[in-house]
């Protein structure tokens, strides 16, 4: 008599960075979380920069800008832009899923399952994200003279 074990799908804290055999959506979720935490870190730095250093007058502000034009901060800004775009687009995908916009008629779950959402939606969003990220990097680099 072997007892049937319930499926263990709780990955614990390790599940924040590694999702094993799960599908792409689980990894999208992990990236959503990582980018969210990264943007939170940026938000704190940004708030300190635009308040504490701004109320102290022109010299302090320009010295701060001098520090922020350091190439390492430029790399950080690129990461923030990419993270923001990913988080925004994936967030819109999540809202579409949550509220059920434009997902087609629901079908009874009879084998073989036809899940239009899982088939198409995230590939579409992924392609849109890549295009938008490339556009922004291109604009920032070559037209606005980013570096």
């Amino acid at each position: 008599m072997t007892q049937i074990q319930p499926r263990r799908n709780y990955l614990g804290a390790l599940g924040w960075i590694w999702a094993g055999n799960y599908k792409l959506e689980r990894y999208l979720y992990i990236f959503h979380r990582i980018t969210g935490l990264g943007i939170l870190l940026f938000l704190l730095l940004h708030l300190v920069m635009t308040t504490v250093f701004r109320v102290q007058g022109k010299e302090v502000w320009e010295a701060t800008m001098e520090v922020l034009h350091n190439p390492w901060f430029k790399v950080g800004e690129y990461l923030v832009v990419v993270a923001f775009l990913y988080h925004a687009l994936n967030g819109l995908r999540l809202i579409i899923q949550e509220l059920g916009f434009a997902l087609g008629r629901p079908r009874p779950p009879i084998y073989p399952y036809k899940d239009s959402l899982r088939r198409k939606r995230y590939w579409t969003i992924l392609i849109i994200s890549i295009v938008v990220i490339l556009c922004v990097v291109f604009f920032y680099d070559f037209i606005a003279g980013g570096w």
Binding site: V81, F84, F139, Y140, I143, A144, G145, G146
Partner: peptide, 10 residues
């Protein structure tokens, strides 16, 4: 905010 701050040349 991002467009105004970063795409000033455009």
């Amino acid at each position: 905010h991002m467009v105004l701050m970063h795409l000033d040349a455009i």
